[in-house]
Structure formats: structure tokens, C-alpha cells
């Protein structure tokens, strides 16, 4: 259903399917092994918007790094469209919690980074302009990152990701450090970008409301080592309303799963 819609909206650059099969991962800290993911399995359909929700430090971000191909899992496999993920690829782009723009590059050059790294910038400069238009920062193309506000910097980071036409967009709490007003605006922008482009989206967040406003599916993780605790479908049309009683009900359920029901 979702796939069909996405295909109609944007025929060429639709999202990819993501299969996470029995993935476990651990960190070595001073010789001791600290398990962070334990037997996580998850199937994401092309074009889905999946939010990963869990207590802070539970290993969600680690899972994203595995999906991006930045780290290799200790056990299990991850596949993008049936192809095993072994290393980073521009079809899976990450937007981190910090914008991590390169301070020595202008906004335009930052957005151009991916095309430049892939060696196609010369013939495709217009894609950089388009991406900047998409996030509404065309007027700032010659600015340096230190001249931007937090929200603008995060928008540039988003443009830097989108310019690659990713099949899977990986968002690691990208709105976590923004003020609440900027946050609400950017949530709406994220949804409309996702609807227009049709990429598969993975969003790590620890804000249940954000997850429910944005995602088709909310995966709730347990405390470390992270296991999938619940897989909740959010069948509500966009744009969603924060006061929607259906969402409020789901939110109560989710907070209950996270052990925070006493506060409500």
C-alpha cells in the first residue's frame, strides 16, 4: 500500500527495502565486552518511515551506524534491497544529531560534498542548487557554517544528505538539539520531503511524540542491550495533529513500554 503510493509520487528514486536479520553487536571497553544490540530483527518496506524509540544509550544509534555501514555487526546481517551492507554507500545517508558541517567549506560546498566525493560534481552542479532550494537556504550558499543558526545548520546537513538522492535516509536524532519551535517546523518539513521523494526513512529519537507525528511505524527498544520490544503501526494520515486522541493513546502505550507510565 505504502509502496504503491510512493512509486506513484516519485517513480525513479523510491526507497529501498531494509532487512535487519538477527543482528547483535557489542563494544570492547577495556577488554570487557559490552553488549549493545541483542538479536535485533526488523524488516522495513520501501518508502516506510520507521521511528526507533528507546531509552537513551540503549543502542539505537549503534544500529543506525550498522545500517549506514560505518560499523560491522558482531553477528547477523543487514541487507539493502537484498544486497548485504558491508560498507558505507551514498544510497544510505546519515544525518547526525550534530550537523557536523565542514567549517572550512561554504554552505554550497558542504552540500556538494557527496557529489564531489563520488566524482560527479562537475556535471551535476544543479543538483546542489536544487537541494538548497528544497531546504530553503539558497540565499545562504556562500555563508560559512559558523554564521548559521542551529536550525539552518541542520537544514544544510539535510540538504547535504538529500543531494545524493538516498534510497534510505538515516536520521540520528537530527532535531534533538533544536529549540521546540524550530523542531516543530522541521518535523513538518521532514514529512513533506519524505512524501515528495519517497525514500525509506529510519529515525532515531527518544521523543515519543516526535515518533508518532512522523512515522508509519514505531519500533520500541528495551534498555541496553537493545531488543525490539514492540512494533507499532501508526495508521494516521498526514499532516498529523499533535492533539489527536489516537496518537495520545499510542503515546501512553509507548511510555508504558518504556516504564514511564507512572508519570502519566
Amino acid at each position: 500500500m505504502v509502496t504503491a503510493l510512493a512509486e506513484i509520487a516519485t517513480p525513479p528514486a523510491a526507497g529501498a527495502a531494509l532487512d535487519i536479520e538477527q543482528v547483535s553487536h557489542a563494544f570492547d571497553i577495556d577488554g570487557a565486552e559490552l553488549p549493545v544490540l541483542s538479536d535485533v530483527s526488523l524488516s522495513v518496506e520501501p518508502g516506510e518511515f520507521v521511528a526507533l524509540l528507546g531509552p537513551s544509550g540503549c543502542g539505537k544509534s549503534t544500529l543506525l551506524r550498522l545500517v549506514a555501514g560505518l560499523d560491522k555487526p558482531k553477528a547477523g546481517t543487514l541487507r539493502e534491497d537484498e544486497v548485504r551492507i558491508a560498507r558505507p554507500h551514498p544510497s544510505r545517508v546519515v544525518v547526525f544529531q550534530d550537523p557536523t558541517l565542514f567549517p572550512w567549506r561554504t554552505v554550497w560546498d558542504n552540500v556538494a560534498l557527496g557529489l564531489e566525493a563520488q566524482g560527479v560534481l562537475k556535471s551535476q552542479r544543479h543538483r546542489v542548487d536544487d537541494a538548497l532550494d528544497l531546504v530553503g537556504l539558497s540565499d545562504f550558499r556562500t555563508a560559512y557554517p559558523h554564521q548559521l543558526s542551529g536550525g539552518m545548520a541542520q537544514r544544510v546537513a539535510l540538504a547535504r544528505a538529500l543531494v545524493n538522492d538516498p534510497k534510505i535516509l538515516i536520521l540520528d536524532e537530527p532535531l534533538g538539539k533544536l529549540d521546540s519551535l524550530t523542531r516543530i517546523t522541521m518535523q513538518a518539513e521532514l514529512v513533506s520531503l519524505w512524501q515528495r521523494k519517497g525514500f525509506t526513512t529510519l529515525l532515531v529519537t527518544h521523543d515519543a511524540e516526535e515518533a508518532l507525528v512522523l512515522a508509519n511505524r514505531v519500533i520500541v527498544f528495551s534498555d541496553r542491550p537493545a531488543r525490539v520490544k514492540a512494533d507499532i503501526r501508526v495508521d494516521r494520515p498526514y499532516p498529523r495533529h499533535r492533539g489527536d486522541p489516537y496518537l495520545a493513546d499510542l503515546r501512553r502505550q509507548i511510555l508504558g513500554l518504556l516504564g514511564l507510565d507512572a508519570t502519566w
Partner: peptide, 21 residues
């Protein structure tokens, strides 16, 4: 910062790009 390398790698950067750019 490793974050810079992570960003560049996910965008498809090769080792020479990581050093030079």
C-alpha cells in the same frame, strides 16, 4: 573529529578524499 570522517564516508568518500578534503 571522527564525525567528519563518518559524514564523508557515508557520502561515498574514498580514502584519498578523506586525506585531501
Amino acid at each position: 573529529s571522527n564525525a567528519y570522517y563518518d559524514v564523508a564516508r557515508t557520502l561515498g568518500a574514498k580514502p584519498s578524499f578523506l586525506v585531501l578534503k
